[in-house]
Simulated scan of single mutants.
Amino acid sequence: MEGTSLYLPVVILLMQCSPSVPVTVSTDKHRVEVHEFLDAVLSCTFRTEKDQNPRIEWKKKGKDVSFVYFDGHFRGPFEDRATIDGATVTLKGVTQEDAGEYRCEISAPLDTVNLGETNVTLKVLVPPHTPSCEIPSGAVTGSVVQLRCRDQQSIPPATYSWFKDNLPFHQPRHANATYLINSHTGLLEFKAVAKEDTGRYSCQASNRVGPPKMCEGKHMTIEDVNVSAVVAAVLVVCLVVTVCGCGGYLLHRNGFFSPGHRGRSNVNYVPPPQEPQDFKHTQSFML
Rank of each mutant, 00 (worst) to 15 (best):
N166H: 03
I84V: 01
S18C: 06
I135F: 08
A205W: 03
G62F: 02
I181T: 11
K61D: 07
D71A: 15
W58L: 12
G210F: 04
L8I: 13
E57A: 13
G93V: 06
E105K: 14
F279N: 08
A99S: 11
E189V: 12
D197C: 04
T141F: 01
E36C: 04
F257Q: 02
A175D: 14
L13R: 04
P273A: 13
G199R: 07
V94E: 07
P109A: 08
K218E: 15
T112S: 08
G247V: 09
N53S: 13
Y7F: 12
D85P: 00
W58F: 08
G263P: 00
L8Q: 12
G255I: 12
K213Q: 15
V32W: 03
V113A: 07
A40M: 05
A205Q: 02
H252Y: 06
K59A: 08
V227A: 11
G142V: 06
P109E: 10
D51F: 09
C238Y: 01
T83Q: 04
G72P: 07
P276D: 12
V23L: 09
E33C: 01
H281F: 13
S66W: 04
V230L: 15
V124N: 02
T48A: 08
Q277C: 10
P127T: 03
D224G: 05
V113H: 08
L14R: 07
C215L: 08
Y160N: 09
C244A: 13
G72A: 11
Q16N: 06
P271S: 14
F257R: 03
R208Q: 10
R31G: 01
T198R: 07
L188A: 01
L42Y: 08
G245I: 00
P156S: 09
F74I: 10
A205M: 02
G247R: 00
N254S: 09
D85G: 09
H30V: 11
P172N: 00
